[in-house]
Design a protein around this nucleic acid. Structure first.
Lengths: 261, 261
DNA sequence: ACCAGACTTCCACTCAGCGGAAGTCCTGTC
DNA sequence: GACAGGACTTCCGCTGAGTGGAAGTCTGGT
C-alpha cells in the first residue's frame, strides 16, 4: 500500500466521476453549462457529456432553457429520504416556527457530519440579522453555537480530532486554542446550552441547545441567532432549551427510564 | 431501432446501476440491508457491494449501526441545491405557515414533474385530517388540487398527453373522463383556483391556487387540505389565493425592482 | 460572410468493472 | 458448543463498457 508515488489526477472509477459531476454543483454554482461542469469535475468534455446525458435522462440533473444544467427534482426527492435531515426536520419544524415567532430572530437546526455542522433547516426572522448560513450549508464545529453543542456531546475521539486540528479564526472572538475550546465544551455539557458570541461574524451571536433521540444521544442542535449589539444571550436560554426539549420529546419519549404515572 | 426483442434485465451502464441503487430507497424503504438493496436494484451481490462501498465512502449513502444503509447527508445537501424545490420552498414557507395557522389544516406546496405533482413542502395542521402526501412524494395530476392547477397552466402538449392516458380512479369522485377533465381545467383557468373534492380520499378535499414566476408562468401550486365533512370549499378560496399571490410576489416583484420603503 | 466557443457525435482500443465462487462473521437453535 | 443458515466481504482473470481524441455541427457575435 501507499507509495504509488504519483498523484492521481484521474479519480478513475465511473461512480466517482458521476458523484464528482454532482458535487460540481454548490451554493455558488447551482447552474452550470456543460463545459464548466466538465472542468469543475475534472473530466474530458466528451466523457462529461455522456455521463451528464445519462444523469439528465434519469432526472438527477435537469437542463434549463439556457442549456445549463441544474440539480434535478428526482435527486432532491431521494435526498428527501435521508433520515437525518427529513424526519428530524419534520419533528422540529413546529418548534422552530414558534421559536422564530416568539423571538423574531433567525432560528436554525443542524446536525453533525464529519467535523462540521450541516444546517438542516433555517427560518429567517423578520427583524433578523442576515447570517451566512443556508439550508444544506456547512460550518466548522468550534465557531458556531450548534457546533459547540454537537461537539460537546460527540464521542471523545471526534473531540480530540477537532482539538488537534487548527481552529480557523473568523473574528477576534473566535475560539482558536484547544484549551479555550476544552473549557467551553465542559461548560456546554454542564449548562446544557452553548453561546457562540460573535465567533463567525461580529454582528451576531447564537444560543444553542441539544436535541436528543429517545436513547439520550444528542442527534441535533437548534439555535437562535441574534444581533450582538445590545442583546443579552441569557434572555434566550430558556426559550431555546424549551424548544430543543420539545423537539426531543416529539422524537420519542426517553427510553429505559420508568415514567411514573 | 426498436426490436431488440428481449427485455433488458441488465441495465448495463454503471451510471444507471448507481442511480438504480439510489432509487432502491423510497418512502417505504428508507433503510436497506445490502442484500435487499442488491435485490431491489437488480444487481449481483458482489457488484452492489462494491458500488455501495463507493457511494458510502463518498457520503451518498450512510451505514447505520445495524449495518443497514440509508441515504446520506451529502446527497441530501446536493438535493438541497435543486432550484425547483429549495428557493421556491424558502420563498413560500412564511406564507404556508400563515395559511396553516389561520386554517389549522394541512397545507402543501407542489411542482410539476413529468405527468405528476411532486410535493415540495407540507405542513400538517393540528386539527388536520391525515393525508397521504409526503414531502418528496408524487401523485397524479388529475386527482389533486395542486395537480389540476399545474395541469391547467401546463403546455397544451402535456395536457393532451395526460388527457390521452387513462385517468386512474381513487374514489367514486375521481375525475376519470377526458371530457370531465377538460371542463374542470377550463374552469380552473378561468377562476384561478382548483378544488379537488374527495378525489383521492373520501374524507378530504383540497383547494389550490397557482404560484407564478416573475414572467407569469405558473411554477408551483399550493393548497389547503380540509375534511370533506361539513366544509365549504369556497370559504378557503380567498386565503389560498392570497397565500399563492404572496409567494408569487416574493419570487419576483415584476422584474428586479427594489421595493421602496 | 466569417469566426470563436460551446456542444454533439463517432469509433477503435483497453483497462475498469464484472460477478462467480470461496471465505468470514455473525446469530439463533438444539 | 457444535452446527446450520444467512449476510456480508474478498479475490481474481476475462471482457465489453467506457473512454476520449478528433471531427462535425450549431449559435451568436462582428
Amino acid at each position: 500500500m501507499g507509495s504509488t508515488g504519483r498523484d492521481g489526477p484521474a479519480p478513475a472509477t465511473v461512480t466517482q466521476r458521476v458523484l464528482g459531476l454532482l458535487a460540481a454543483f454548490d451554493a455558488d454554482h447551482p447552474r452550470l453549462a456543460l463545459t464548466e461542469l466538465a472542468r469543475r469535475a475534472g473530466l474530458p468534455l466528451s466523457t462529461a457529456h455522456r455521463l451528464v446525458g445519462e444523469l439528465t435522462g434519469w432526472g438527477a440533473l435537469e437542463r434549463g432553457d439556457d442549456g445549463r444544467y441544474r440539480i434535478g427534482l428526482r435527486l432532491w426527492e431521494i435526498g428527501a429520504l435521508a433520515p437525518r435531515s427529513v424526519g428530524l426536520r419534520e419533528a422540529a419544524l413546529p418548534f422552530l416556527t414558534d421559536l422564530q415567532e416568539v423571538t423574531g430572530e433567525n432560528v436554525q437546526l443542524a446536525v453533525l457530519d464529519g467535523t462540521e455542522v450541516v444546517y438542516v433547516e433555517r427560518l429567517s426572522g423578520r427583524r433578523a440579522v442576515n447570517v451566512i448560513t443556508r439550508v444544506g450549508g456547512r460550518l466548522p464545529l468550534h465557531a458556531t453555537g450548534v457546533g459547540l453543542v454537537l461537539l460537546a456531546h460527540a464521542p471523545p475521539e471526534l473531540q480530540e480530532r477537532v482539538l488537534a486540528a487548527p481552529l480557523r479564526r473568523y473574528t477576534e472572538h473566535t475560539i482558536t486554542t484547544p484549551a479555550q475550546l476544552r473549557r467551553v465544551l465542559a461548560d456546554v455539557r454542564r449548562s446544557g446550552v452553548a453561546v457562540s458570541d460573535r465567533q463567525i461574524e461580529l454582528v451576531a451571536l447564537s444560543v444553542a441547545a441539544p436535541v436528543r433521540a429517545p436513547g439520550g444521544e444528542v442527534v441535533a442542535a437548534l439555535s437562535v441567532v441574534v444581533p450582538a449589539a445590545g442583546s443579552d444571550p441569557r434572555a434566550y436560554v430558556p426559550v431555546v432549551r424549551a424548544a430543543a426539549r420539545g423537539v426531543s420529546r416529539v422524537l420519542g419519549p426517553p427510553r429505559g427510564v420508568a415514567v411514573g404515572a
